[in-house]
Amino acid sequence: MASRDTKKSHTLGINTRVIHHGDGFAKNTGTVMPPIFPSSTFKHGNPEGFDYTRSGNPNFKILESLLASVENCQYATVFGSGVSAITAIASSLKSGDLVLCEENLYGCTVRLFEQVFQKFGLETKWIDFTTINSIEAIKKINPTMVWIESPTNPLLKIIDIRKICKIANQNQIPVVVDNTFATPLLQRPLDLGATISLTSTTKYINGHSDALGGAVCTQDFNWEERMKFAQKSLGLQPSPFDCWLITRGIKTLPLRIQRQVATAFSLANELAKHPSIKWVRYPFRTDHPQNDLAKKQMAGGGAMITLSLKANQTQTYNFCKNLKLFTMAESLGGVESLVCHPATMTHASLSSQIKEKLGINESLVRLSIGCEDSIDLENDLNQSLSQLK
């Protein structure tokens, strides 16, 4: 039998932590699910210290507490979208600062850096962080910040977070990791040395395609202060209702992820056998270029699959449109399966030269695997593949 001290030191499991959100700011009602606090302003001098929702709201605090628990960190700040979270971080930099970026980032991240912040003197340099030379590049370039994704969108490259953070930390360079595809259930960037773990809570964290949100998690109090300042001063705050929806959604995150990952792995293996497919990218398949690193760094291969068809753009579009259970749409991470054509959707803002360099071509397809029955998704993919001509 465990001693009383052992019981006290026991850390609650992830399934328990996502369900028990702590203070719901409604102690006198006995409500199990926290209510929505849609108020724009609060009476001066209230015990909780709220004044104006742009600078704080009970629904923000509830979700931030949950996210900090799941990310295993001290601080979490929520925003109105994933792009709002990116904006908050980028806005903390100044003219002349250089951000060293992984070349295969989310298209809206690229657009924000290249078409918005570049006008204010923020510089970016893009490199392939899967190469050996990338570590030397950090030392040589000495950037103000390093910005990576892993797995990347849409090519699912796996970046060695620990190795990059080790070098960056030695040189006091903050590292931002966009962890949207993995979620903290499969990968914890802060535990690997990252300064900031960024996520679009619109995706897996919420999981129901009905709310927008973003979050920045960190162990660094100074970065927490910067994020709170950006949330308030730039008006990047989420809505209380969206925070309530995301708080509801995160309660089933472990269950959803478990099913989605298992289905994605099975489908990736089946798709790789199909004669109409050139190649399949899935981090936990042995043919993935960074498979060993993925298994070392991640608890699972995720629920995203990227594949290249033996088809032109028209045929690839027809494949996407002929699917019955995969909706052709932006976004990912919901309970419903989605299909995306990155070249004309998520990464449409990139120049044709950049897309060609990265390998985001007309035959590339990105699948977000939902919670449907695996056999039904497999049959749907096969019927659409059979129509390729």
Rank of each mutant, 00 (worst) to 15 (best):
G301V: 06
E336K: 04
G302Y: 02
E136T: 03
V177K: 11
I354L: 13
L323K: 00
M1I: 04
L309P: 01
F181W: 14
T199D: 10
F265G: 06
K296A: 10
L253D: 04
W147R: 09
A26P: 03
L67K: 02
I354F: 12
I375K: 13
E102C: 11
E64R: 01
P254N: 13
F25R: 09
V70F: 14
F117S: 12
I158T: 05
P254V: 10
L309I: 04
F229C: 10
T29K: 11
F129A: 11
E71C: 13
K355S: 06
K251W: 04
P154C: 09
V175E: 14
L381T: 04
G56A: 07
Q313S: 10
L332Y: 13
V177W: 07
F265P: 00
N179D: 13
T202S: 04
Y204E: 13
G30N: 09
P283N: 11
S331R: 02
Q170V: 13
S69K: 03
Y106H: 13
L367G: 06
T87A: 09
G235T: 09
A85F: 02
E362F: 03
G302M: 07
S84E: 04
M33D: 11
G301R: 04
E224R: 09
V177Q: 15
Q172P: 09
E330S: 07
T199Y: 01
N291R: 08
I159W: 10
L271H: 00
I36S: 10
N206Y: 01
L93E: 12
N104I: 11
E372Y: 07
M145G: 06
P254D: 13
T29C: 08
S3I: 00
P275L: 01
L112I: 13
E103W: 15
F241D: 06
A264L: 02
I196N: 08
G302N: 05
T41D: 01
